[in-house]
Amino acid sequence: MLRILYKVLRTGVVTESPPAIGEAELEKVGIEVKRHIDARFGGSLAIREVDAGSCNGCELEIHALNNPWYDVERFGVHFVASPRHADVLLVTGPVSRHMQAALQRTLAATPEPRYVIAAGSCACDGGEFGVSYASCGAVENVIPVDVKIPGCPPTPLDLLRGILAALGGKDSAADE
């Protein structure tokens, strides 16, 4: 136990003293997100992630949002296990035809008001996979989408910007 504590203390809080790219921006976007969540969602935004056919690249970056560098929970954003608890569906991948019904049912299980965010190039426009016998292409071909976050995959910061855009914030560079 002492060794764990020692390691924890020696590691420090990486979230507040990051040495690399884009942290000032992360703080800026994050605080903006938090302001909107406080005002409109009672301080907490619940996201249900749905992989509707992705290559798993987007999932890795969505995971990264929870690592100590980004730590999005401090902005009030958290990921939930059921669509019934969710304010936002964050959907990745071109929607495979085999996932079409599952995605529609997930949407139906998400209470309103809700937002749907399409994350990643495939979710935005079908990406490398497009429409075929096996793929419905973009998420909006299957369910209505509020915000799109392009990128292959979008970086964690892109994702946070997209979430802000969904909340109607000013930083909607990703919403094109």
């Binding site: 071109p94 085999h98 996979f129």
Partner: peptide
């Protein structure tokens, strides 16, 4: 399994090498 079947093998057909690598 098979839920994320995206037709990758079919999509590859007719592509040039650069297109194949993107896939």
């Amino acid at each position: 399994l098979g839920y994320v079947h995206k037709g990758i093998e079919k999509l590859a057909q007719g592509r040039d090498p650069a297109g194949l690598l993107r896939l």
